[in-house]
């Protein structure tokens, strides 16, 4: 992985680590106790910061450039991945990847948003913002999974569906809506993993699952904090306040019954240890998949229906 990218609130850690680096470069052996002391200081500090992240800070962690993306999960958790391209209508959207793969040896369909790390790849992946053909490709793969009785595992990490002229002309709204309706009636198990940014309808369009798992520092909301701030405060820079109001953290959302489990991240965030993060996610997927495999196709559809049917807070 490339050099560590620190977030604004990690400044104290960055300074300490820089100091350690300097001491190391001196190469003096008598410094080793001091280095050890500093190192443990860093660990305590990191623990302290990451145990107390604000919602706005979590949004930064969720968007971290080195956070594991769908293809990282596929590389760590799946074998025999064969990527399948295209929606058979218009094109192949690079902001959504998917294909056949084996999970613990068992064939499954895996689909997820894909972001890029360097500028070129970011542009290629359209910053993880799908066009309608991306959602239509996802639906084609979901329906193929149903045809061949394969469980579906999705990874959700997008700022949102792309707001562009072409996207509107080709029916962005229709593509998302159709996915919501069709996912509701699929007769195979669906496990959804929110791994980074759960950006509104663009996220939900591949997130109607029997089980929804969410990484500890991920966010999931109806709008981005910046977008919300621009509308309600008429000031796009009030993202921090909007993040607090929207309550998009995994810890907020589990209270509302929208997700089933929070998957813990290594201290310092998922980007610090892809292996540990993906394995933690993998073991959660394994557990839920085993439960879902006990259900009949009818039970799976009804289970999913009742899950979303219950998502209501109101006064009667």
């Amino acid at each position: 992985m490339a050099a560590t990218v620190y977030m604004e609130f990690e400044k104290p850690i960055a300074e300490l680590e820089k100091k350690i680096e300097e001491l190391r470069s001196l190469g003096a052996s008598e410094m080793s106790t001091e280095i050890d002391a500093l190192q443990s200081c860093v660990e305590t500090k990191r623990q302290e910061i990451f145990n107390n992240l604000s919602r706005w800070q979590k949004a930064q962690v969720a968007r971290h450039i080195n956070r594991p993306f769908t293809l990282d999960y596929i590389q760590h958790l799946f074998t025999d991945f064969n990527e399948l391209h295209g929606d058979r209508n218009f094109g192949d959207d690079h902001a959504i990847v998917g294909g056949l793969a084996r999970f613990d040896g068992q064939p499954v369909m895996v689909v997820g948003h894909q972001k890029g790390r360097d500028t070129k790849e970011k542009v290629f992946r359209n910053f993880g913002m799908p066009n309608p053909e991306g959602y239509r490709k996802a639906l084609r793969l979901f329906q193929m999974a149903e045809q061949f009785n394969l469980p579906i595992i999705t990874f959700v990490d997008t700022p949102g569906a792309y707001p562009g002229i072409g996207a509107e002309e080709r029916g962005q709204a229709e593509a998302i809506a159709r996915n919501l309706r069709e996912m509701a009636s699929l007769t195979v198990p669906i496990i959804v993993c929110i791994t980074g940014e759960g950006g509104s309808g663009g996220a939900l369009a591949i997130a109607v699952g029997n089980r929804v798992l969410m990484l500890e520092h991920s966010v999931y909301a109806v709008i981005s904090p910046e977008g919300c701030a621009a509308i309600l405060w008429s000031d796009g820079t009030k993202g921090q306040q909007a993040a607090e109001a929207l309550k998009p953290a995994a810890q907020d959302i589990i209270e509302l019954g929208v997700i089933d489990e929070i998957v813990h991240e290594p201290v310092g965030g998922a980007h610090r240890d892809h292996e540990a993060t993906t394995q933690a996610m993998g073991s959660a997927i394994r557990r839920h998949l085993a439960e879902l495999k006990e259900m009949t196709p009818e039970q799976l559809v009804e289970d999913r229906y009742q899950k979303f049917r219950a998502m209501t807070r109101m006064a009667e």
Partner: peptide, 9 residues
């Protein structure tokens, strides 16, 4: 927030 999104599903 998230519950309004879930009304879509």
């Amino acid at each position: 927030s998230i519950l309004s999104l879930m009304q879509m599903a």
